[in-house]
């Protein structure tokens, strides 16, 4: 069985634009991600942990080609990402971001049904899929399908965001601090539900966070990003016991 995601030697350098003196100093050609490799199998959740600016979010965007890698190879369900048109690739990868990014002028139903509609599913099939997904993320379709995003709470919005990412049944899900903006109670609630979903869905997931407790709770494996490199890759148990100074720093903060 092919892995949901295979990443080999992934690198990204900022395009070397003419640098200016002072301010932020030399920016041209700075490497944000360097030689990152990992594999995520179906039903597995890789948590990318790291400080702000360590390259976790950049890595996610390199996978769905919101940024184009300067080196390396990405395969999604066995297929080379670079060989597929970017828009087609992205429809096969669920994407959840912290700000959710629901379309404010679409109802919940239209938001969730977005990718199936882009892919040209027949409307009845979309409607059935939306109901199924809303139920899956714990929202009653009767009550929520016709609402607009501004009529939802933060937690409800992020549930819709997850449902939208799952709509076209992608083999891979990328989540960029999906619970980062929620209040602590709602966050724990969603983490618990997400944990229950992980097993049932059988999808490969890459979950970016800087919250080490969230990472240890949700990840089947932890990848620790440090200054653009993957400094550590292993199970949560191995992470707890690692003597890598950056792992120790994170454990100390937990």
């Amino acid at each position: 069985m092919t892995a949901a995601l295979e990443v080999r030697g992934l690198s990204y350098e900022l395009p070397g634009r003419g640098t200016r003196d002072g301010g932020r100093g030399r920016e041209g050609g700075r490497a944000l991600v360097q030689d990152v490799s990992f594999t995520v199998g179906a039903g597995e959740t890789l948590v990318l942990l790291g400080r702000s600016g360590s390259g976790k979010t950049t890595t996610l965007k390199l996978i769905n080609r919101l940024l184009e890698p300067t080196a390396g190879d990405v395969r999604v369900a066995g297929e080379r990402a670079a060989d597929v048109p970017a828009t087609k690739l992205r429809r096969r990868i669920g994407y959840v971001i912290q700000e959710v990014g629901l379309f404010p002028h679409f109802t919940v139903e239209r938001n969730v049904g977005l990718v199936p509609r882009l892919d040209g599913w027949p409307p009845p099939r979309i409607a059935a899929r939306v109901r199924e997904l809303l139920t899956l993320v714990g929202l009653d379709p009767e009550r929520f399908a016709a609402r607009y995003p501004h009529e939802l709470s933060g937690g409800q919005r992020q549930r819709v965001g997850v449902a939208r990412a799952l709509a076209a049944d992608p083999p891979l899900l990328l989540l960029d601090e999906p619970f980062g903006a929620l209040d602590p109670i709602t966050r724990v609630e969603l983490q618990r539900e997400f944990q229950a979903l992980e097993g049932r869905l059988g999808k490969g997931m890459v979950f970016v966070t800087h919250d080490v407790r969230e990472g240890l709770r949700l990840g089947t494996r932890i990848g620790l990003m440090h200054e653009g490199r993957l400094a550590f890759l292993g199970t949560p148990e191995e992470f707890r016991r690692s003597d890598h100074p950056e792992c120790r720093a994170f454990m100390a903060a937990a």
Binding site: R91, I97, V100, G101
Partner: peptide, 13 residues
Amino acid sequence: DPAVREAGRGMGM
């Protein structure tokens, strides 16, 4: 909202 635009692009629009 840039998040809306990023979500749209990330969904494959």
